[in-house]
Simulated scan of single mutants.
Amino acid sequence: MQLRPLEKRDLPYIYKQENARRVMALWFEEPYTSFDELEILYDKHVLDQAERRFVIDVNDEFAGVVELVYIDNLHRNTEIQIIVEEKFQGQGLAQEAMRAGLEYAFNVINMHKVYLYVDVENTAAVHIYKKIGFEMEGTLKEQFYANGRYHDSYMMGMVWSSFKEIEAKAKEQ
């Protein structure tokens, strides 16, 4: 598995993800984007320094995306998001890709904190995020609207010092 920058050639895969209602509900976003709109958004954001989008590449196959969005260079924090294609789920890929995204956020673009939002009902994701080292920071009541109803969301975060401790422990093993 490797992370590589999202490229225009990846847009058909992104289009498929963004038009999957089940997938977008996990990201608390509205599904159904036209391909033309997606291309325009790509062209508009390709040089945007407030976000980084990566493809999870497994043997030259598109396996998902990891995104760092709302990069705030003043406060040095960013939100991280991930989608793993169904075919690649259950293989530990989400953990590996999230760790790579965290490594990039902390060691390349010098973030102090990385945070995420996750539906309180998405117990599998919460488990993975805790296992990686994210800490629960709070519950946001009826924060997101998806699939016809409001959802509570956990906000989870990791600061640089915690990441360094996790990194050090991993090197010891």
Rank of each mutant, 00 (worst) to 15 (best):
M1G: 15
Q2A: 12
R4C: 04
L6M: 14
L6Y: 03
R9C: 10
L11Q: 07
Y13C: 10
Y15I: 02
A20L: 01
V23S: 03
M24G: 01
M24H: 00
L26G: 15
W27H: 10
W27I: 00
W27S: 09
W27K: 00
F28T: 10
Y32S: 05
D36L: 10
E37H: 01
I40E: 15
L47N: 15
D48L: 03
D48Q: 00
A50T: 14
R52Y: 13
R53G: 12
F54S: 12
F54A: 05
V55G: 06
I56T: 13
N59R: 07
E61R: 14
V69K: 11
V69R: 05
Y70N: 15
I71K: 05
D72V: 06
N73W: 09
H75D: 07
N77I: 00
N77R: 11
N77C: 08
T78K: 03
I80N: 06
I82G: 01
V84H: 04
L93R: 07
A94W: 02
A94Q: 04
Q95R: 12
R99F: 11
A100H: 08
V108L: 08
N110E: 13
M111S: 09
M111H: 01
M111L: 10
K113N: 15
K113I: 11
Y115N: 08
A124E: 15
V126M: 04
H127P: 01
I128H: 02
K130C: 11
K131H: 13
G133Q: 09
E135P: 02
E135T: 09
G138H: 00
K141Q: 08
Y145T: 04
Y145M: 02
H151I: 04
M155E: 12
M156A: 05
M156E: 03
G157Q: 07
G157F: 09
M158V: 11
V159H: 14
V159W: 13
S161I: 10
S161W: 07
K164R: 14
E167K: 10
A170P: 08
